[in-house]
Lab assay of single mutants.
Amino acid sequence: PVYLSVKADNSMFIGNDPVTDETMITALNALTEGKKDTTIFFRADKTVDYETLMKVMDTLHQAGYLKIGLVG
């Protein structure tokens, strides 16, 4: 499974590897070998604001990742 996490300080990680807004999709493409039907499990600290969550989800959708599971 692929886990994308947003921490309380808005830092992002794919698994244990830090990513930025600019590198997130490139890292996901490498990890999933470009398979856009891969489910991305998205988790965020409860203090992360809604705007940040939606920005990340919008970026995922624009890149073609449509299977996003929200996890606690």
Rank of each mutant, 00 (worst) to 15 (best):
V2G: 01
V2R: 02
V2E: 01
V2L: 09
Y3F: 11
Y3H: 08
Y3V: 11
Y3Q: 05
Y3E: 06
Y3A: 03
L4V: 12
S5G: 03
S5R: 11
V6I: 15
V6W: 06
V6C: 03
K7S: 08
K7F: 14
K7C: 14
K7R: 11
A8M: 06
A8N: 06
A8D: 08
N10H: 12
N10W: 05
N10A: 09
N10V: 03
M12N: 01
M12P: 01
M12S: 01
F13Q: 05
F13I: 04
I14R: 00
I14A: 03
I14Q: 01
G15H: 04
N16Y: 08
D17F: 13
D17M: 15
D17K: 13
D17S: 12
D17L: 14
P18G: 05
P18K: 11
P18S: 09
V19I: 09
V19C: 06
T20Q: 04
T20V: 03
D21W: 15
D21M: 15
D21E: 14
D21R: 14
E22S: 10
E22F: 07
E22M: 09
T23A: 05
T23K: 05
T23W: 03
M24T: 01
M24A: 02
I25Q: 02
I25E: 03
T26F: 09
T26C: 08
T26I: 11
A27N: 06
A27R: 14
L28D: 00
L28E: 00
L28A: 01
N29A: 07
N29D: 14
N29G: 05
A30L: 11
A30I: 13
L31W: 08
L31A: 12
L31S: 05
T32D: 02
T32V: 06
T32P: 01
E33H: 14
K35P: 02
K35E: 06
K35N: 14
K35D: 13
K35G: 04
K35Q: 09
K36F: 07
K36M: 08
K36S: 05
K36D: 03
D37I: 03
D37S: 09
D37W: 06
T38P: 03
T38C: 08
T38G: 04
T38R: 08
T39V: 14
T39E: 13
T39H: 13
T39N: 08
T39D: 07
I40E: 01
F41S: 04
F42R: 00
F42S: 00
F42M: 15
R43P: 01
R43Q: 14
R43K: 12
A44P: 10
A44W: 15
A44D: 02
A44T: 09
A44H: 14
D45N: 05
D45Q: 03
D45K: 02
D45R: 02
K46M: 11
T47F: 12
T47L: 13
V48M: 05
D49H: 10
D49C: 10
Y50W: 13
Y50E: 10
E51M: 12
E51H: 12
L53C: 10
L53Y: 07
M54E: 07
M54G: 06
M54I: 12
K55F: 07
K55E: 04
K55V: 05
K55H: 10
K55A: 08
K55P: 02
V56R: 04
V56L: 13
V56T: 05
V56G: 01
M57Y: 07
M57F: 11
D58Y: 12
D58G: 10
D58Q: 13
T59R: 14
T59P: 01
T59Q: 12
T59W: 09
T59E: 07
L60F: 03
L60T: 01
L60Q: 00
L60R: 00
H61I: 13
H61C: 09
Q62K: 14
Q62N: 12
Q62E: 12
Q62A: 14
A63R: 02
A63C: 02
G64Y: 02
G64C: 04
G64P: 00
G64A: 01
G64K: 02
Y65N: 00
Y65I: 02
Y65V: 01
L66T: 14
L66F: 15
L66N: 11
L66K: 10
K67D: 11
K67Q: 10
I68M: 04
I68E: 01
I68S: 03
I68Q: 03
G69R: 15
L70H: 07
V71D: 09
V71T: 08
V71A: 11
G72T: 12
G72K: 11
G72L: 13
